[in-house]
């Protein structure tokens, strides 16, 4: 039988899905054990047990000075920045995507402009943002918006253009105005695509968030990682990295669920 025709059963599929995770864990445990047996003071690869211990300490014990549990405060601050940035990007991107996709006049005026804007490396703008918007929340949110908005605009305007011309013509023969075509035909049809674009933008959004927090902040997941880096506190860093990964995965999963739930007619497109 050809390899391309061999499909795993349910149990085997589950086993295969878990296998890489288990392998990575084992590799880490072995590596950590080798280093620790050579030098018990080694900080680079703390034992898995140490990491779990640190994890428990981080999520339950408050800061010695203020009594706040920093882990949750960091999480809340970062999620707020991320949500605000991505939310603004999605909203503005949707608006411009519809306008550029539907109106040839706007397309002529804006499509090339957005294409050029999207080539600017957002991190290169970070110093300007810090100078213009200060070191507070605003500059971090703006960095996420600048980093993700051009992609969302370009993706959505392309999706609007891909709506079959037949549907647009049909709507016109039913007497729909440009406004009605935008809100009743194009908008609902690109909504699943918007969720898709947001899902793809989450990766870059986290990157920009952590970069901004690393440089200037006093709270946030990225800030904490770069703070404890000075003490080589690998157990804390690993805890935060695992937590960020989990948050990103959970967001992606929820967006996918939302898309299935609210746009059942677009099932095959997702």
């Amino acid at each position: 039988m050809r390899l391309i025709n061999i499909k795993p059963g349910r149990a085997l599929a589950l086993f295969l899905a878990l296998l890489p995770f288990v392998l990575v864990l084992i590799a880490y445990a072995v590596g950590s054990d080798i280093r620790l047996s050579a030098n018990p003071q080694d900080k680079l690869l703390p034992a898995p047990a140490t990491v779990v211990e640190t994890m428990q300490r981080l999520v339950t014990e408050g800061d010695r000075r203020t009594g706040r549990i920093l882990f949750w405060h960091d999480t809340w601050a970062s999620l707020q920045r991320l949500g605000l940035g991505i939310g603004i990007s999605a909203l503005v991107g949707l608006m411009f995507g519809l306008i550029i996709g539907l109106l040839p006049l706007a397309r002529s005026a804006l499509a090339q402009f957005v294409a050029v804007l999207s080539m600017i490396p957002p991190l290169a703008l970070l110093p300007i943002l810090f100078i213009v918007f200060g070191l507070g929340e605003l500059s971090k949110v703006v960095l996420i918006v600048i980093g993700t908005l051009p992609f969302i605009i370009r993706d959505l305007s392309q999706r609007v253009l891909e709506i079959p011309q037949e549907l647009i013509v049909k709507a016109q023969t039913l007497g729909a105005s440009s406004w009605v075509i935008a809100t009743r035909i194009a908008l609902p049809q690109v909504m699943p695509r918007l969720i898709q674009a947001v899902r793809l933008s989450l990766g870059p959004a986290w990157l920009f968030l952590i970069a901004a927090e690393a440089i200037a902040s006093d709270l946030g997941l990225g800030y904490r990682i770069f703070l404890v880096r000075r003490y080589l506190a690998m157990d804390v860093i690993l805890t935060y990295v695992i937590w960020i990964t989990f948050l990103a995965f959970a967001m992606d999963w929820m967006l996918r669920r939302a898309s299935r739930r609210f746009f059942p007619w677009a099932e095959d497109g997702l």
């Binding site: 037949e166 049909k170 007497g175 049809q189 007619w265």
Partner: peptide, 19 residues
């Protein structure tokens, strides 16, 4: 100058709104 209410159309496909 543009499609309007006086002309109805049915194409081979994509003639109904999928959403």
């Amino acid at each position: 100058r543009e499609p309007g209410l006086d002309r109805g159309i049915v194409f081979q496909k994509y003639s109904v709104f999928p959403h």
